[in-house]
Design a binder for these strands. Structure first.
Length: 626
RNA sequence: CGGGGUGUAGCGCAGCUUGGUAGCGCGUCUCGUUCGGGACGAGAAGGUCGGAGGUUCGAAUCCUCUCACCCCGACCA
């Protein structure tokens, strides 16, 4: 016979406590009551040595996750409970937004990817496997192709649209470098939704559903108790403000968000616009041209130092080329920004009307570019090239730049004098001074740049973890999968799609990253594996058990999940574990409290001390704190 | 992929330079004393030293190959 109270907790009594007796659906879900002794909750003092970030360390130590391989984790019962709560919230909000749940396979034949060329776009990030017949399949990273195929088979008329479908499922990405525990995995839990429309605008159009989903996302993350920002993001194929990311605000986040403190405008650095700056082409030369020998200087700061200037005094021309060559596109795109700025490929694409990529180094050298020592003058020397200059790189009388021959740089470069061929007759603020020259905003925004939304305001930077991303896909996949339907005018048209993702397992980790202290995790109530832990100081004491049972039952009736710590451990161990796991509320029951006919209640988050509450008032006291 | 590093008990580590048959802390099990913030004493269990090959009387230790994993750089939920 086991020692202690185990014999008092028969399976039957537990079932009676935690199971609904009626078959009718109830508004409030009955909470679970579990005993620690019967669960798998293994806490440790030390974290695995590879864990660095708080979320990784704490979730490992608190017994939420266990690493199986690189970027692969088991979700232990605690994590599974939290994930389920997150999923329940997601389901409720998406169903309310008119989305229907379904489930697609993780394995999909490679042919599906050929049409959309994502087998190429995803490259090595796509997990591939070969079956016994030599057929190649992929473990799905997302399901645009499959869902398009499914809907295409069933939907032939505009009358069946709009349609909005989602699934919650394990996804696979063969990340080059999985890291940071659950934040960047090779296998992870994701909610992906897809919507289908005849039009972008109007009733039932993409824009309308996109807004509905945006609201649903806001509701989801709010209900989770997360501190988050919805920011404008790089959108891909359609352009405009057609994409938003949902970021959990957190200093350890990998993404940088730019924020205008006055208007609340927020955007990913990739996307962030920059407010108007003064610029002019009309700068007369103030210095003589001079060539300098600058061998073996990796890094622009070294070169700038050798030339007696700073990175901000240099021009940084990058040799790029169209991502997809075409007859009406040049072979080379020379993008020039100030030395201390970074080129933003999305903005170059918007300025030019087509996407660009870094130029092939070998081909660039053959075309005459002295890679590493290039100047904007090359646009005059290389046929089939265009020059794109950032506003900040054009605005100044004297620049240092490459000399267009190896190991040499020039100082005293002046746009008007040294490139008279293209700037000679241009007016001071002409953004197209020459057929092959464009002046545009093509750099990333930086801290201190003028806000694009409020005069005088300066952009600030914040960090975040991306947990959700919604965007307007347009007809990319319906064209790739040739999905057309008949419209009112009996014309066949490609459907318009939207796509909406939430990294479910990542959201759980981001929540820990955002909400923890020195003692452990601090779960918001909606995501906590159990809202309440009842710590028994003397787990074998009958009166303690009775009190705990009664309180747990009434909490469960109110919909709260309760864990009863009935382990034969010393109190200190139980308190430490409760703090580590991060239950929002701890109710302590022991001889000392029972003497006064009371229990002790303590919030995990609040600074306030533990409070002694009469047993009869315990339920209400708990509810007030949850 | 480029650069750096690590594989020894469930977790954290020492031992390797200078070969001699594996140890410490936490955890686990037993007994006793304890019992409101990670107790103490006594005893016990647990390891193909990542894998293969080689050198040697003898390899965790030296050599070769290999596998796995981690950290720093370009993508993404």
């Amino acid at each position: 016979m086991p020692r202690g109270p185990a014999m008092r907790w028969t399976t039957a009594t537990l079932r009676a406590m935690s199971t609904q007796t009626s078959n009718a659906p109830s508004a409030t879900r009955r909470g679970d009551i579990h005993r620690w002794r019967n669960t798998l909750i293994a806490t440790t003092r030390d974290a695995p040595s590879d864990a660095e970030l708080p979320s990784h360390v704490l979730m490992s130590r608190a017994g939420f996750i266990r690493r199986v391989g690189a970027g692969i984790y088991s979700y232990l019962p605690l994590a599974h409970r939290t994930l389920n709560k997150l999923c329940a919230i997601i389901r409720e909000e998406l169903e309310a937004a008119g989305s229907m749940e379904m489930l697609m396979p993780s394995m999909e034949p490679m042919e599906f990817f050929a049409g959309s060329k994502r087998d190429v776009d995803y490259g090595d990030n796509l997990f591939r496997l070969t079956d016994r017949h030599g057929r190649v399949a992929a473990l799905a990273p997302t399901h645009e192709e499959i869902i398009t195929d499914v809907v295409k088979a069933a939907v032939t008329s505009y009358k069946q649209l709009p349609l909005n479908l989602y699934q919650i499922q394990t996804k696979f990405r063969d990340e080059f470098r999985p890291r940071a525990g659950l934040l960047r995995c090779r296998e992870f839990l994701m909610k992906d939704a897809y919507s289908f429309h005849l039009d972008i605008e109007g009733e039932g159009g993409l824009d309308e559903v996109y807004e509905t989903m945006r609201t649903a996302y806001t509701n989801i993350f709010q209900r989770c108790g997360l501190d988050f920002s919805a920011v404008e993001a790089e959108s891909g194929p359609i352009g405009g403000s057609a994409s938003h990311e949902f970021m959990v605000n957190c200093e350890t986040g990998e993404d940088t968000i730019m924020v205008c403190p006055e208007t609340g405008y927020a955007a990913n650095v990739e996307k962030c616009e920059i407010g108007e700056r003064q610029w002019s082409l009309d700068h007369a030369a103030t210095a003589e041209h001079q060539e300098h020998h600058t061998p073996k200087m990796p890094g622009i700061d070294l070169v700038a130092g050798a030339l007696g200037t700073t990175a901000a005094g240099m021009l940084k021309p990058l040799v790029m080329q169209p991502a997809e060559p075409a007859d009406d596109r040049p072979a080379w795109v020379l993008v020039t920004v100030r030395g201390d700025h970074d080129v933003n490929e999305g903005k170059v694409r918007d300025a030019l009307g087509y996407a660009v990529k870094m130029g092939d180094e070998k081909a660039a050298k053959e075309a005459g570019f002295a890679i590493g020592y290039v100047s904007p003058r090359m646009v005059e020397k290389v046929e089939s090239s265009v020059l794109v200059i950032d506003h900040d790189a054009v605005n100044g009388p004297t620049w240092a730049t490459g000399a267009d021959k190896y190991d040499h740089h020039d100082t005293g470069f002046n746009w008007q004098r040294d490139m008279a061929g293209v700037f000679g007759s241009a007016s001071a603020t002409d953004e197209t001074p020459h057929a092959r020259v464009r002046i545009a905003e093509v750099r990333n925004a930086e801290v201190g740049d003028p806000s694009p939304r409020a005069k005088g305001a300066r952009l600030e930077a914040r960090r975040g973890i991306e947990v959700g991303h919604i965007f307007k896909l347009g007809d990319k996949y319906s064209k790739a999968g040739d999905f057309q339907i008949m419209d009112k005018d009996q014309k066949r048209r490609h459907v318009i799609m939207g796509c909406y993702g939430i990294g479910v397992s990542r959201t759980m980790a981001a929540c820990v990253e955002m909400s923890h202290d020195d003692n452990g995790i601090v779960w918001p109530v909606p995501l906590a594996p159990y809202a309440v832990v009842i710590t028994l100081i003397k787990p074998e004491d009958e009166q303690s058990i009775d009190t705990a049972t009664t309180l747990a039952a009434s909490l469960a009736t109110e919909g709260y999940d309760v864990l009863i710590d009935d382990r034969a451990e010393r109190p200190g161990v139980k308190f430490k574990d409760a703090d580590l796991i991060g239950f929002p509320l701890r109710v302590t029951i022991g001889p000392k409290t029972l003497e006064q006919n009371s229990v002790e209640i303590k919030s995990r988050s609040a600074e306030s001390e533990a409070e002694l509450v009469a047993i009869d008032d315990a339920l209400e006291a708990c509810k007030r704190r949850l």
